[in-house]
């Protein structure tokens, strides 16, 4: 379903679409394709949901969103999908994932992220989320980020 050209195309566009009048033509020239093929392949990869979104990737820290919290919650597995669905209804939540529990040392299975402009706002939003989704009964921790050692978008390499 996905061929080598798709991988090469993904690798090429991951560097960012050129900011010129005909950006897809530029990508096409790099790969020896024509412009329309590039557009059609990207549209197809998006339709297949391999490309989750296609567009502007913002740098939230630079835009003033400096308080970044990861919240981890231990919820019953039988309720995890419905709790996650409720959490996702809040527009200040940026990501929501299930990850495996690690026994007593790290018993959490539900992770969500809040990027906010300051710590107090994020703490208020977490409070609001706990009330709206009835999370106070579960064990949870909030982990604010401190230093950023490395931040770079995921880079995928074309398959050999």
């Amino acid at each position: 379903m996905i061929d080598d050209l798709d991988y090469q195309l993904l690798a090429a566009v991951q560097q960012g679409l050129p900011i010129v009048a005909r950006p897809y033509l530029k990508i096409a020239e790099q790969l020896g394709l024509d412009e329309q093929q590039v557009i059609e392949r990207l549209a197809r990869l998006k339709k297949l949901a391999l490309i989750k979104r296609w567009g502007v990737v913002v740098k939230h820290r630079q835009l003033g969103y400096r308080a970044n919290a990861m919240i981890v919650i231990k919820v019953p597995m039988s309720l995890i999908d419905s709790i996650a669905a409720k959490i996702c209804q809040h527009s200040f939540v940026n990501l929501c994932y299930q990850r495996p529990q690690q026994g007593e040392r790290w018993p959490y299975n539900l992770y969500c992220m809040i990027h906010g402009k300051d710590r107090d706002t994020v703490l208020q939003q977490w409070n609001q989320l706990q009330q709206a989704c009835e999370l106070s009964q579960y064990r949870s921790e909030i982990l604010f980020s401190r230093r950023c050692f490395k931040q770079r978008g995921a880079i995928y390499h074309p398959k050999p």
Binding site: Y7, L10, V13, Q14, Q15, G16, L17, I19, L42, L45, K46, A49, L50, I51, K52, R53, W54, G55, V56, V57, V58, K59, Q62, L63, R99, Y111, G153, A154, Y156
Partner: peptide, 23 residues
């Protein structure tokens, strides 16, 4: 882009659709 407000215009690839990744 010059002011570093955007990292790129491009794809966000669905996690684990290509290769494997983990936190």
């Amino acid at each position: 882009s010059q002011q570093n407000y955007i990292s790129r215009i491009g794809p966000v690839i669905a996690p684990n659709s290509i290769g494997a990744s983990a936190l």
